[in-house]
């Protein structure tokens, strides 16, 4: 299972520059100090525009998860892709693929995870998470 090819746009330039360096950026409110998810335009606490970025520690826990099942192909078993809603240690949420799980293995709510990055050929580097060892 690999991440699909995703391209940057103006709004995501800084974010994808950082994932290319192996860094996960989130938003930081210069007014009240709260953190926000990378795509947030406004601070979730004081609603002021968030323009500053901050490097996330890259650690978090699973809030909830799913495993998306593909259709079985010719003789091939159906694919299963586990994705989770991650709560970063700083508070913001992020949907991300979960890696390093064994066949049929499933995460659980509260599971500790840490970020890694995958860069598909021709696309931006995408944050994925794996269980904290």
């Amino acid at each position: 299972m690999t991440v699909p090819v995703i391209h940057r746009d103006t709004a995501t330039e800084v974010f994808f520059d950082s994932t290319a360096r192996g860094e996960l950026l989130i938003r930081h409110c210069a007014d009240c100090g709260a953190h926000a998810a990378p795509q947030s335009g406004a601070c979730p606490v004081c609603q002021n525009p968030v323009t500053a970025w901050a490097a996330a520690a890259g650690t978090g826990t699973v809030v909830a998860w799913t495993a998306v099942h593909g259709r079985p192909g010719d003789g091939a078993p159906a694919s299963e892709a586990v994705s989770a809603l991650i709560e970063l240690t700083e508070g913001p949420w992020l949907y991300a693929p979960l890696r390093n799980l064994g066949p049929g293995e499933r995460p659980w709510t509260g599971m500790s995870v840490v970020v890694a990055f995958e860069r598909p050929e021709g696309g931006e580097a995408i944050p994925v998470f794996r269980p904290t060892v």
Binding site: V3, I6, Q39, T66, P97, T109
Partner: peptide, 26 residues
């Protein structure tokens, strides 16, 4: 396949179904 929506899709949220699945799991 670009920008923030692309990032959400890359996370596996390829339609409404996985998002509702995550909500139901919670």
């Amino acid at each position: 396949t670009s920008g923030w929506m692309g990032l959400t899709a890359a996370a596996g949220m390829i339609s409404a179904t996985p998002q509702y699945a995550v909500a139901a799991r919670r």
